[in-house]
Design a protein around this nucleic acid. Sequence first.
DNA 1: TGCATATTTGCATTCCTATGCAAAATTACC
DNA 2: GGTAATTTTGCATAGGAATGCAAATATGCA
Lengths: 336, 336
Amino acid sequence: MVQDRVTSIEVARRAGVSQSAVSRVFTPGASASPKMAAKIRKVADALGYRPNVLARSLITGKSRIIGVVVAYLENQFYPDALEKLSMALQARGYHVLVFMAAQDAGNIDQVLDEIVDYQVDALVMASVAMSSTLVERCDAAGIPVLLFNRRQDDARFASVTSDNVAGGRKLAEFLIKGGHRKIAHIAGWEGASTQRDREQGFREGLAAGGMKLFSRAVGNFDFEQSKDAARELFNSFDPPDAVFVANDHMAFAVMETLRSELGLRIPQDVSVVGYDDVPIAAWPSFDLTTVRQPSDLMVEKTVVSLLDSIDNPLSEPRQVAIDGPLIIRGSARKPQ
Amino acid sequence: MVQDRVTSIEVARRAGVSQSAVSRVFTPGASASPKMAAKIRKVADALGYRPNVLARSLITGKSRIIGVVVAYLENQFYPDALEKLSMALQARGYHVLVFMAAQDAGNIDQVLDEIVDYQVDALVMASVAMSSTLVERCDAAGIPVLLFNRRQDDARFASVTSDNVAGGRKLAEFLIKGGHRKIAHIAGWEGASTQRDREQGFREGLAAGGMKLFSRAVGNFDFEQSKDAARELFNSFDPPDAVFVANDHMAFAVMETLRSELGLRIPQDVSVVGYDDVPIAAWPSFDLTTVRQPSDLMVEKTVVSLLDSIDNPLSEPRQVAIDGPLIIRGSARKPQ
DNA sequence: TGCATATTTGCATTCCTATGCAAAATTACC
DNA sequence: GGTAATTTTGCATAGGAATGCAAATATGCA
């Protein structure tokens, strides 16, 4: 059952050549004569030989593995991005080693140890914050780090986000033009740059229109907590007439609560806008006005940045923020 | 920036011991005196030494990597299971290497090559069919394979599913007791065992109640195609009064189409039931009656089976089918 | 054809850790 | 304290492939 692996030595023996010849045939960029390559390929195919990636990694120092740390896959934005990222990397000969880490970062340290153990070529942190000690560790290990959907002022790592400040501003402008007077905000986790940026842009937009936030609650990017936040804001004798929920995932929780629990109609009684434009946002039941995070583009930029930092480790990490369009649907009253 | 890795030899040198001593301290089960262990650990910590998993794999023949092949993450059941599986394996010192493969199996062969290259200890195929040639390949490579949420008659691999036949039967009984007379079915991909089993159970249940399927369409587990299927079945002068959609993901598409496009009320005009009980099914907008696939339990069984087949390669693969409860909510008329 | 240059090929070594074996150190027991 | 039994330690090697270097072939050009 458990056959011995076919090695390059075995192939070499049967083809009557040296092990190095076999190696060169399977190493992109190495030189081998067409004749030799043909002969070796034939034997290799017959035996079912394939180079052992692990052994190769040992000597090249490159594992062709990208570690991806992700906190939770409940918010559809992440599985979607993970799927795209995985496919894009796969197409370039890389693969994704997944590490789950709780949001609260308690076990991130341990997770990071494990990552370093696997000699990953680079690291993508999706919606996970990096403490400065973690930065040091990766830096010391020579592993380039890219923050996905998060940004950090530390110039030592690359990041790819959407332009959250601009997006927040667009939403504020849209709600103001829609004639809303009492505009509230349900925030995600306050430690997240996405949260801070979106809120900042939103507040700027309000200020530019001579308004300010009517009320505010925190949902921590969590479904259940967002329901509580909705109750908190709307169980009031003077509730808001519009609310910007910091991402779509929370917005669904808010919409469900407003409609089924508080008996409010959307958008007649209250307008709701979100952020991300996950597929569910387009479902008729939600029809959510939101800012699209262009995940295809974000993944594309991520891959380019990643490969660049792998190929030349001295290149400066870049912080990319991609503009995302406002997607106007029916969950918020529209400007006349 | 790119430091040299700290190796066991370096640690040994600084601690004034042999490399083997260092190795033994970091190899579970190897013997080292407490004194020596303490000394080495101290030096190792100071240098930030951690064993290189890849080098270790090379010699032990175990990579502690589990390959997971998954077709698409759009159906929430899969990211959810992936998250749980990843955490469970992580807790046992394994990690998940993700491979995306298109449903149509065109590129599965290539994907499999890549998997073998990485010397994974085992393989989980989530909702991906195995052709018999693929079976041979894995068998030859000595890689145990487990089908997750799929079953195959071939006794050569383990599988973990819910008891789809029983689940289908429960749904039929429930709909019959609810007084439905025209019961339809929207099927997933017909090549999937889950589809065949659910439908078989459902038909058996109908037959036991002296009924048979009123009409049928195919949604291929795809959101858009399921909308078409709904249109096909319900744009009729004699539409069904109940429909069993083969999974929740498709059921949402069907519900959206029935309500927003065809103006039908659920459950007053038509009852809808699904399968999986993904989190969204509990949202008030859908409130979907469905059969729960106990993903915690399924993951648990998967991990146990996986580790067992890794530890003793001669053990017989087991096919596990876990019973899932009917979750009665409001999307289907209830029995009086 | 002859010589200089470019390309292939093989040899030997390297990457880092685990492990069988034998030597050394420790422990147990009389 | 002395010998036997046990544990600890170091030595040397293996695992599979990549690569610098030198030798061997092939190519170019007059």
